[in-house]
Amino acid sequence: MSFGPYLLLAVLEGLVSAAVLALTAVGLGLVFGVMRVVNVAHGAFFMLGAVIAWMVADALPGPPALGFAAALVVAPLAVAALAAAVDFGVLKRLGYDPDATIVATIGVLYIVEQAALSLFGPDARPVQAPFNLRLQLPWFGYSGYKLAVVAAAVVVLLAVWLVLSRSRAGLVMRATQIDGETARAFGIDTDRVYAGVFALGAGLAALAAVLVVPIQQAHYLMGGDPLLLSFIVVIIGGLGSLRGTVIAALLIGVSEGVVSVFFSPTLAKILATLLVALVLVFRPQGLFGRRAA
């Protein structure tokens, strides 16, 4: 294969990781933006989404598409419900203190991982893709499912953007993010907003994981990379900026795809880390964030 098609393949692979990463990072960014909570358990919620997807698909007889469709609904909802419980039972009791919640979510990460290990076991397990379409390009064939993942991510991100910018729920979330005390003084139940945002953030991570699990198997330790990369993306994009997060995910995802294909995945990680360091030094508010007033 000559250079051009090779590059196209690398970019396609990068787009797929970028799509999954954008969903995951937007969840992390929303939680931090609205609640000022650094959710270290975000990767664990991602992993749980994948594991639940495997369990649902495994339990349902019939065609793979049916199991997958069920997983697509059940896993995000289950993880969102768990997150709402964590919010209510743990974060709220800590008064959303920024330091205490970091420690608490580390605890949640550990508990969720150990629970997954004992219930699910240490092995990686595959979930079948809902369909097996191969798109034949002139130079190589490409997985139709992977392209569907990109499309699904675009649709979900558009929906999140619409909810945030156009809906009543989004208005209330933004008000809470800007000034929680004043939001309460105008009748907004900020505790409910926090529970909802935490659930939504975790649900997005779980959704990303369900999408990824036919490509990359479910495993109880699979949450580490998405967590790290989400932090990188959120920092580069600028906290609280949906657009910045998505663009940073594209940047990181695609360049990682390209660098991994032509050089090595390790070099890709090194470059991403370097980029974060540069952003932190020269533009700490992120590429698209506004400096705090």
Binding site: V172, R174, I178, T182, A183, G187, I188
Partner: peptide, 17 residues
């Protein structure tokens, strides 16, 4: 204490909720 990153109309909408 306005919601600074919101429009005038959105600040009003918060009041009307």
């Amino acid at each position: 204490r306005l919601f600074g990153d919101m429009t005038v109309a959105e600040n009003i909408a918060i009041g009307l909720r």
